[in-house]
Nucleic acid binder design. Sequence first.
DNA 1: CCAGCCCGTTACAATTCGTCACGCAATCGA
DNA 2: TCGATTGCGTGACGAATTGTAACGGGCTGG
Lengths: 249, 249
Amino acid sequence: MYIVREQKIIASPEMRTGSEAQCLRDVFRQQASEHLTAGKSLFLEGDRAEHVFEVVEGALRIFKIISDGRRVITGFLYSGDIIGLAVGQRYLYSAEAISVATVKRVSRRRFDLAVTDNQRLQPEFFALVSDEMAAAQDQMVLLSCKNAEERICSFLLKFMKHNSLPGERRRNIELPMCRQDIADYLGLTIETVSRTFTKLIQKGVVSIENSALRHTIAIERPALLARLAGDGEEVCWHEGLMAGQQAGH
Amino acid sequence: MYIVREQKIIASPEMRTGSEAQCLRDVFRQQASEHLTAGKSLFLEGDRAEHVFEVVEGALRIFKIISDGRRVITGFLYSGDIIGLAVGQRYLYSAEAISVATVKRVSRRRFDLAVTDNQRLQPEFFALVSDEMAAAQDQMVLLSCKNAEERICSFLLKFMKHNSLPGERRRNIELPMCRQDIADYLGLTIETVSRTFTKLIQKGVVSIENSALRHTIAIERPALLARLAGDGEEVCWHEGLMAGQQAGH
DNA sequence: CCAGCCCGTTACAATTCGTCACGCAATCGA
DNA sequence: TCGATTGCGTGACGAATTGTAACGGGCTGG
């Protein structure tokens, strides 16, 4: 442990870029804001991963294009999120602004130095990577098992959790992405997304402002929404399971 | 850079646990082998993540159980793979031996120390995390878009790549997992897996040893298999795409 | 003001995949 | 040796999702 402190002491000034940072976002504090218009690309899958980005405002989608031209959206990012973590030499996906958005960037070199240099940041860094991995696995579960309704409900729930301050209970949510984005994210077609929204409205789970372009959703019955998402409150891990050794089929 | 070397020089002996390690697997070298019988659990989702494991021999599956009792296999691990990386406080999934298997373990504390202590290991560590992330994303693409045949073909291809030495060109592969495992991994039912194998045999893509229990697959037409997997040789990133800013739909 | 476009919605037909039921072969245990 | 069990394959059927096509309602720009 003392070695770490030693390292800080002998660190030369120009290496100390991130030393005062209390959290990862502080690494971006001094950086200039960059503004993106809707649809503007931030980087492409396969590009050399030379920067890490923080979303200051707006929303982005990250996606892959597969051989037949279809698009798979692997995630959405909102203000406060960080993009470009834990990649190797090259970006694993493309990133684009959905709406107008503001980002800040630092070079990977500098970001990595800040993290390795400042022990305080490492837990936060690993937590972020871990969250990203957990999100990917949740998405695999969703795509493996859930039907259209469950997918839409899970999506709305996740959006609510992510985009509301702790304690805040807003009934209205404003989805920045269009139906096609939702479809490509959930492994559905745009028609199925539409139909499912209609069904949820008929069931009284949500309602949609017929203003603008159906991007404003009011959650009428949050409890029902959660039940329809089918996550079953994430199960009871610490009972019974230990007994059955032989992989239950 | 010189700071890194400095750090090594002043490192106290007891901190140098992993200092001589040339690669991550060396961290496990001194550890005792543990033997698992088929179906034996290594750890459960939600357990405190106290160890990191290396698969010495055999195969394991990692999976989640969802609320309605179904199982989603998020990956298979073979000899040489490392399990338990990049998790937070708790394991994100359960791990079980498929066949008899041998593993080694080190405590997370020791593993993390070895990695932070020895700069040489960090690139390999990040590469592993990155691979895991890339695999998760590929799986999302598979589950989002691919039909049964493409899924099976992708699965066989990936298995071949992973379980053959570079340059080696074996036609016969021995799948350690049963049909149900494949189904739960690919988001299909066991019947669809069966039917799809039959179709692939009829097309002359593969053949199955009718010995034992259909676990030995001979790849008759590798090129066709690759084409049917539909990965389209991972596309052409550096042309055209830059032009279309407005998210193509 | 109207035409044209984009996005979302709806209806209907087509297809894929899941469900259910059963047959077959190999293995296990008494 | 026999019956029970397990894992896999197959066929018929139905449900859920997809594809196709047409429609509507706001914007935009002439």
